[in-house]
Design a protein around this nucleic acid. Structure first.
Length: 596
RNA sequence: GCCCGUGUGGCGCAGCGGUAGCGCACAGUCUUGGUAAGACUGGGGUCAUGGGUUCAAUUCCCAUCACGGGCUCCA
């Protein structure tokens, strides 16, 4: 077979991915040496390494990694060629069946071809469509990263396999750099910084996934919310408030009860059954409440779109294994909005929502995000509600909104909600994991469920369309992303403490307090460090707290009504009149500048 | 939910079958110091919780809870 033909039927791997894929095979051979009864599933190259899934007689633990690594290095050094062949499907089935390789058999059974690819290096023969490097010696420096469990085919109803993650690079330098980058990323992990910067606390005394915010963390929340509120008002949203409780009946009407019940927290009252229509539940989403508000008024076509926004604390029973710091919690604050509009307003309203979201992202300087345009699967129309025309129009409108702004996005077939297409902003955390933050969703179903109406030009009742929309998603998750994005060094406008006044000796505390009063009067968030420490120690501590400005005050400054300004970048601006400093900070705050 | 790991003073960590230490933080005393850690002294832990094995458990075993990593980038 020609090289071209071989590549065509192979996975589309880059050279380094091909090398990593080969490393996965070597890892499988090492595991085979240790566990002759091992069953093998799959072992692909992934973004920065590779993995292989095994079914083993005993679970792997991190203690197994050194031995596997050692065996791998020996195999690699053996310069064994990767030999490729093609077997008739039946022959391969028989071979793997005899070997008890159930997973390989299942894979082959699902393959349409008459022939399957087989690769062998040294003593390990595997079903594989390739490609591979020529021989094991071409595999660069490797390191096994971790053991993990993974469901076969990613399906939690199928067996749990042992997954080994490893990484491989062309040179030792690249491997070292990769490991160094990982360490650096861990330094900006929001859980670590959240503790160090005294932002939030996760305590055993509270249920899992219920973060509590310290004064500085609450200030950060407040600043984030104020900013989004201000921006939403600019874009024509009105804020509402709907409390923390809902009735089961409400969620039965919205149908959430039937699909989402497991995630809801019932509020028990005496002998009441949790599913009684009148039973209370902690509010897991706002849609039904905003809809109820909409229904409480008569609406003319002239006043649409009606845009209700709310910073609402929601409670969702997320599965235990998925909770992660602030990124996935059970009590979250959503900057949720629901827009009720006429069908002819869809395009314009999408544009508005996209613009709002992009403006917020730009202010935060967030640029490492991806946009998913989630569309319905045209082959499974029965899983979605709504007519073809409406879907085509809605999907087209979302696509237009993105194209109009020249934004890059990825279309994901089959990821739409059953009630409409949506667009999600996926933000990466320090460790490269993607989290959904913003979302814009079109909904044809809830207006139907609740019988929503507006009075049209013709005096008749018409059905509005709904848009569900969140700019930052959950305040908690977005805060996690921001902490990692800034590595805790928030821009001036977002810093919980903007300036630390540092008196040099005790006799300067009085002047420091005067400075503090002036700053506070100007709306600047400042504190005085009056501890009996040396000024150097105070500078260091403020620096570690990533406070933007350190204001050192001694005899000279007190005499001149000045402050000596040091930036957290280590830059020392020297003394400046207090009024000038106030002006500087006020300006940075007003413009939400990234500058110090 | 499932697999693996972890749980020792507020935080970061040692340790070990004979009831615990270090650094930081905290408190007190001395020091009043010009841009990333001044010195000394001191207080603080039922070793996550519950059960079991043992003469003896923080240490070994089991369960529970919490936290961390992973769970469809696909032969």
């Amino acid at each position: 077979m020609s090289v071209e033909a071989e590549l065509q039927e192979s996975v589309n791997y880059t050279p380094i991915q091909r090398m990593r894929h080969s490393a996965a095979h070597v890892m499988a051979e090492a595991v085979q040496e240790m566990f002759p009864d091992a069953k093998f599933a799959i072992g692909p190259a992934i973004e920065d390494g590779f993995y292989y899934d095994f079914d083993l007689p005993r679970p792997l633990t991190p203690e197994d990694l050194p031995e596997i690594e050692q065996r791998m290095r020996r195999i690699i050094a053996g310069k064994h060629p990767f030999m490729r062949s093609r077997w008739p499907r039946e022959q391969a089935l028989e071979y793997f069946r005899n070997k008890g390789q159930d997973y390989k058999v299942e894979i082959i059974e699902n393959l349409p071809d008459d022939e399957v690819g087989i690769y062998q290096q040294n003593n390990f023969l595997d079903l594989c469509r390739g490609p591979h490097v020529e021989n094991t010696e071409q595999i660069g420096p490797i390191k096994l990263m971790r053991v993990a469990g993974a469901y076969w085919r990613g399906d939690e109803h199928r067996p749990m396999l042992q997954r080994l993650y490893g990484t491989a690079w062309d040179t030792q330098e690249e491997l070292d750099q990769y490991l160094w980058r990982l360490e650096e990323a861990q330094k900006r992990d929001h859980r670590k910084l959240g503790r160090e910067l005294k932002l939030f606390v996760l305590s055993d005394e509270l249920p899992a996934g219920v973060p509590m915010f310290l004064p500085r963390g609450e200030m950060l929340r407040h600043l984030m919310e104020s900013y989004v509120r201000e921006t939403q008002e600019k874009y024509g949203y009105q804020h509402v408030w709907t409390g923390h409780l809902g009735k089961v009946h409400l969620y039965k009407t919205s149908k959430h009860w039937f699909t989402y019940r497991e995630n809801m927290f019932p509020v028990m009252q005496g002998e009441q059954e949790a599913s009684d229509d009148d039973a209370y539940v902690l509010k897991p989403m706002n849609c039904p409440h905003h809809i109820t508000l909409y229904k409480s008024q008569m609406h003319s076509y002239r006043e649409l779109p009606v845009r209700y926004a709310e910073f609402a604390t929601l409670y969702r029973y997320e599965k235990a294994g998925t909770l992660t710091g602030l990124a996935r919690v059970r009590s979250l604050t959503q900057d949720d909005a629901h827009v009720f509009l006429r069908p002819d307003q869809i395009q314009e309203e999408f544009d508005r929502a996209v613009n709002l979201t992009l403006e917020v992202f730009e202010t935060y300087g967030l640029n490492d995000y991806g946009i998913h345009l989630s569309l319905r699967d045209p082959n499974k129309k029965e899983e979605y509600v709504g007519s073809d025309e409406v879907w085509e129009m809605a999907e087209g409108s979302l696509r237009n909104a993105l194209n109009n702004r020249g934004i890059q996005y990825q279309e994901v077939i089959g990821e739409a909600a059953f009630y409409g297409p949506k667009m999600d902003f996926m933000v990466r955390d320090a460790l490269g994991r993607e989290w959904q933050c913003s979302t814009i969703q079109l909904d044809f179903v809830q207006p139907e469920n609740f019988g929503l109406e507006y009075i049209g030009e013709d005096g008749q009742a018409h059905r509005p369309v709904m848009i569900h929309r969140a700019v930052t998603g959950s305040t908690e998750r977005f805060m996690a992303m921001l902490i990692e994005h800034y590595a805790g060094a928030f821009p001036v406008w977002l810093s919980p403490v903007q300036a630390m006044v540092i008196p040099i000796a005790d006799r300067h505390i009085e002047y420091a307090n005067q400075v503090l009063e002036t700053l506070k009067a100007a709306g600047i968030r400042a504190e005085v460090d009056a501890r009996g420490e040396r000024m150097n120690a105070k500078v260091r501590d403020a620096q570690l707290q990533k406070i933007p400005y350190m204001l050192v005050v001694g005899d000279k400054e007190a005499a001149a009504n000045a402050v000596a300004v040091r930036l957290r970048t280590n830059e020392n601006l020297g003394p400046m009149p207090l009024a000038d400093f106030v002006e500087r900070v006020t300006e940075r705050t007003r413009t939400r500048s990234q500058e110090l």
